[in-house]
Nucleic acid binder design. Structure first.
Lengths: 129, 129
DNA sequence: GCCATATATTCGAAAACATGAATATGTTCA
DNA sequence: TGAACATATTCATGTTTTCGAATATATGGC
């Protein structure tokens, strides 16, 4: 099936697709439950068309899948572990806490720690519609 | 210090920097031990100047650090867990093995499984200098 | 200082990406 | 069918990235 090189190329594609703040955010929002475009648009404070564009990128890279429900289209993560992986990266790689990488190896643990520490500081950072 | 939004932006930058096959490869090569540019160039089969360019991107995103040793410049991962994280992503997200994501949470375990399964299939995939 | 080696940077053209605006498609309901 | 809502796509444009080629900088040995 897939040799190492193939996996690497596909992984690079995946990483590139995720390499945008809005799209990282989308993955976070889709963690756990599927959501429709309007909800995502409202939550992120990003126009609907732009959200659809982002979702198209994520769909092309197999990050998300969608299903239609009436007029709405619901998006979900194609791989349930993706969000945890992303958040793990954020906690251990960006936020300079290698100690988390050592001891907290399950996604849930990482997520909890991250949220506890940074949630309230983020109140003011909402974009405007 | 860093709110969630800041972490997200920096993470997106990190992901973008990693979103190139050669650079994913570089991270893998630097896993465990530092290496000089020539060695990386030879191993990847990518010209020296191009490797330096890639390394500059990775350096700018804080993925790697370098130190000079005589005429050589040795590169290493800025965060030791980065390579493991990348490989974890490759195994669980790209290669469609969510079961690895569930049970194998330590970087070393993931790496071993991946190497065992895909190493030999990759013999032919070497680029030419 | 000069030469060879090792690495980094600059340059330029093509390709890819980001983004707002406009428009198109699909769905429900009356 | 037509209107309203939900989502997707297309378009045009400015920005960034890619990559080879050429060039520049740094180091050690003579």
């Amino acid at each position: 099936m897939a040799g190492l090189t193939d996996i690497r190329n596909e992984l690079a594609e995946l990483l590139k697709a995720l390499g945008h703040p809005d799209r990282v955010r989308l993955v976070e929002e889709l963690n756990g439950s599927e959501k429709d475009v309007q909800t995502l648009s409202d939550t992120l404070g990003v126009r609907q068309a732009r959200v659809s564009q982002h979702l198209a990128v994520l769909r092309a890279s197999n990050v998300v899948e969608d299903r239609r429900d009436g007029r709405h289209v619901l998006y979900r993560l194609a791989k349930p572990t993706l969000a945890a992986w992303i958040i793990l990266g954020g906690a251990t790689l960006v936020d300079a806490r290698p100690e988390l990488g050592e001891d907290l190896n399950t996604p849930d643990e990482i997520r909890l720690v991250l949220e506890e520490e940074s949630e309230e500081k983020d109140e003011k950072n909402r974009k405007k519609q």
